[in-house]
């Protein structure tokens, strides 16, 4: 038996619904249709009345979910695409993120964002929003890169009493498979050493972890050992694990699929530069998507986001310094 990243997300939701009567799923087409990507396939039939089709109004979806959460429910909201969560931005960053701070009433909502690029999806269906939400105090932002994490971190997201932005990568939906669902998991907020090495640290998250692992394999053939750190959650950001890795390798390359201005890679580099400058043998580097909207054309798209090829170039340059 094998299970995909997408199926793991479906299974986590099924388990959350089965184990907690306060959980319900709210989103566009999540009911009988099973969701745009089938992440809620057959859940409406299995859990009648608890997988609810929403109006095409992201603002309204989030607002109602927050109301239900204040009342004691634990909504899982599916945004059809991460990009559309901008329509609900006010609800997420003004209402949900600050609710506990300003009223001490918890806001246990999970917002699932189908994120990141797949070829040919264009500017409004490919974006990675994690940096924007990580900017706001009060939100937890998770970016699972593996089938295990997709499953266990989604379950944990639902259990957390705070609003969680769950960035699931659309490319990994079908391309990533595991033998079975995990029975144990690392805690949220802890980064994972995806591959050990002593010459260079590549910090990545979500789909970029797999590109980084490919580069590590390639460079291993050239006698260079690359350590790959999978952040797992970008907020909280596990600075300690990153710093420990940099202490071992002395070189840092941070890779993200989002736009370059500010963002997660900038945050990682800033933290390492300010707290671990003495650990570095070379200036810390980062690699992001190009500073343009995301192209529709597959060739342009492939050139827009970091790939194993462009990461390998950046890694070799950094190793020469």
């Amino acid at each position: 038996m094998s299970i995909t990243y997408l199926e793991a997300i479906r299974e986590a939701q099924a388990r959350a619904l089965a184990e907690d009567p306060r959980v319900f799923i709210y989103g566009q087409d999540v009911g009988a249709f099973g969701g745009a990507f089938k992440a809620t396939k057959k859940l409406a039939q299995e859990f009648p009345g608890r997988v609810v089709d929403a109006p095409i109004s992201e603002d309204a979806i989030l607002g109602a979910a927050i109301g239900a959460a204040i009342e004691g429910m634990r909504p899982i909201v599916e945004m059809q695409f991460a990009d559309f969560s901008t329509v609900a931005f006010n609800q997420i960053v003004n209402q949900a993120a600050t609710l506990h701070w300003r009223t001490q009433v918890p806001c246990p909502i999970t917002v699932r964002l189908p994120s990141g690029g797949t070829s040919g999806s264009g500017p409004f269906h490919s974006q990675s929003m994690e940096a924007i939400y990580a900017h706001y105090p009060g939100l937890i932002v998770l970016t699972p890169a593996t089938v295990d994490d997709a499953y266990s971190m989604l379950l944990e997201a639902v259990a957390i009493d705070d609003p969680v932005i769950f960035c699931e990568h659309k490319y990994l939906y079908y391309h990533l498979k595991a033998e079975r669902l995990p029975t144990e998991a690392m805690p949220v907020g802890k980064a994972r050493i995806a591959r050990e090495g002593r010459d260079l640290t590549i910090v990545a998250y979500s789909a970029m972890v797999h590109e980084a692992l490919e580069v590590a394999e390639e460079l291993n053939g050239e006698g260079t050992q690359v350590e790959v750190v999978d952040l797992r959650s970008v907020k909280p950001l596990d600075t300690d694990t990153v710093m420990a890795s940099v202490a071992r390798t002395g070189r840092l390359l941070c890779v993200g699929e989002a736009f370059p201005w500010g963002g997660v890679t900038a945050e990682v580099v800033a933290r390492v530069a300010s707290e671990g400058f003495d650990l570095l043998d070379a200036p810390p580097q980062r690699l992001n998507a190009k500073d343009t909207p995301i192209p529709y054309h597959p060739t342009l798209w492939a050139a827009h986001r970091p790939t194993a090829r462009s990461i390998a170039v950046a890694a070799r340059n950094l190793l020469r310094r």
Partner: peptide, 23 residues
């Protein structure tokens, strides 16, 4: 459920709470 500084938010929050009640 709270006062709120964003005009209109109350209607959605109450509708959401009403959904919780129904469930």
């Amino acid at each position: 459920l709270g006062m709120n500084g964003i005009v209109g938010a109350s209607h959605l929050f109450a509708a959401g709470a009403a959904y919780g009640i129904k469930v």
